[in-house]
Simulated assay, not measured.
Amino acid sequence: MTAVITGQRIKLEGNEFYYEAFHHSKTAPTLILLHGFLSSTFSYRRLIPHLNASYNIVSIDLPPFGQSGKEQRFMYSYQNLAKTVISLLERLEIGHSVLVGHSMGGQIALNMIKQRPELFAACILLCSSGYAPKVNQGIILSSYIPFFHLYVKRWLAKTGIEKNLQNVVYNHDLIDQEMVDGYLQPFLKDDIFRGLARFIRHHEGDLPEADLRKIHTPCLLIWGEQDKVVPLHIGKRLQRDLPNSKLIVMKDTGHLVPEEKPEEVFGYINHFLEETFK
C-alpha cells in the first residue's frame, strides 16, 4: 500500500518547494523523482505505487511548475534548481539517494550529480533532455518586455492540452479526463506564465559532452522508441557520453514513459538498482 504525506512545502532561496513523500522503510533506498518541462509530480502518479513497494520516494515539483512557487526573484536556471533541490534533500536529512529524472528532470538530475556526485548512488534518466542549446538572445531579451508572460500563455494555448498529450504518448487511448485535468490544473492561474517567462530567460542549455563524460555515477537510460519530444538518437548519444550507462529502448512507447508503461519501467529500474546495490 502506498502511504503518502501530501502537501509538504518548504521555503528555499525565497521560493516554495512542494513535494510528496512516500515511506517504505528505514533501510530502503530513497528515490528522488524529478518531472519534465510543463509537468509536475502528477506525471509519476502511475509509477509511484510500483516504486513504493520497494523504495522510499520523494517526488518534487520543480519551480515554477506544479504546486511549487513562482517567485519573481528566484533564479530558474538548471544550475540553481539543481543546487536548491540538493539543499532540499539536506533539509530533509536525505543522504545517499537515487535520482530519477524524466525529460527536463533528467537534465536537473545530471546537474545535481555534477555538483555533488558523492550524494547519489545511481541515476535513472527517462527520455531525458540532452544537448539542447541555450535559449537564443532574442527570446531572452523579449522576456523582459512587459506582458511577455501573456505571449507564453498564448503560445501554449495554441495546441491545447489534449493535442500536447497526444504528442507525448504513443497510445492515445490512455488520454482520459483525469489525465487532461491533472496536467491542465497548474496552468489555470497566470502566475505560472510569469514564472515560465523567467524560466525561459534563465535557461542556460544542457550539459555539454565534456561535463557528461566526467559523470561516472551508474546511469540507466529508459527511452520510448517513438518519442517525438526527445528522440531516441538523443538517448543513444547520452549513452555514449555517460561512461557508466546502459540504454533500454521500449517499443510502442512515446515520451511520457512513467504514464504509458509504469510496470515495465519499474521492472527495469528495480533490476538496475538491485544490481547497483549488490
Rank of each mutant, 00 (worst) to 15 (best):
D190K: 12
P117Y: 06
D173E: 13
L220D: 06
A121M: 13
K214I: 01
H149N: 12
L188T: 15
Y131E: 09
Q226T: 03
H216R: 07
G101F: 03
R213H: 11
E118P: 03
E204R: 11
I161W: 07
H216W: 02
L212I: 00
M104I: 01
V135A: 08
D190S: 14
E162F: 01
W223S: 10
I161F: 11
Y170A: 07
F199A: 08
A197K: 05
F187M: 07
I145Q: 05
T159V: 04
I175M: 10
R116H: 13
L207H: 00
L165A: 03
Y131W: 14
G224D: 08
D211E: 15
G182Q: 10
K163H: 07
G101Q: 06
R194M: 13
S129C: 04
K189A: 14
P146M: 04
D227A: 07
R237E: 12
I140E: 06
H216F: 06
F193S: 00
L119G: 07
K134F: 05
R198W: 00
E209R: 02
R116G: 04
A157R: 10
I113K: 00
A122Y: 09
M112P: 05
K153Y: 07
L119W: 08
E204L: 12
L126E: 13
D190T: 15
K158R: 15
D176T: 08
Q137I: 08
L207V: 00
K153E: 14
P231I: 09
I161P: 05
Y151V: 14
I234T: 11
K236D: 09
I108K: 10
P208H: 05
A210P: 00
K214Q: 14
H233C: 07
H203D: 15
Q107H: 06
K228M: 08
G224L: 10
L188N: 14
G235W: 04
S103W: 10
K158Q: 15
G195M: 12
L188G: 06
M104S: 03
R201F: 12
R213K: 15
W155V: 10
R116Q: 15
L196N: 03
C123V: 14
G138E: 09
D211L: 03
I140L: 11
R198Q: 09
Q185M: 14
L221M: 03
E225K: 15
L207I: 00
L212V: 00
D190Y: 06
I222D: 04
G205P: 02
L119V: 06
I234P: 02
Q137S: 11
Q166R: 14
Q137D: 09
Q115G: 10
D206R: 02
R194I: 09
S142D: 08
I108M: 12
W223M: 12
M179Y: 04
P133H: 02
Q166S: 04
G160H: 02
R213T: 14
G224K: 10
S103V: 09
I215T: 12
D211Y: 02
P208S: 09
A197H: 01
L207Y: 00
F187I: 10
N164L: 08
T217V: 07
G195L: 13
Q166G: 11
R213C: 13
L220Y: 03
D181L: 15
N164T: 08
E162L: 02
P117M: 12
R194W: 07
V180E: 10
E178G: 15
P231A: 12
G138Y: 04
L196W: 01
K236C: 12
K153F: 06
Q177H: 11
G138P: 07
P133V: 02
V135C: 07
Q107I: 01
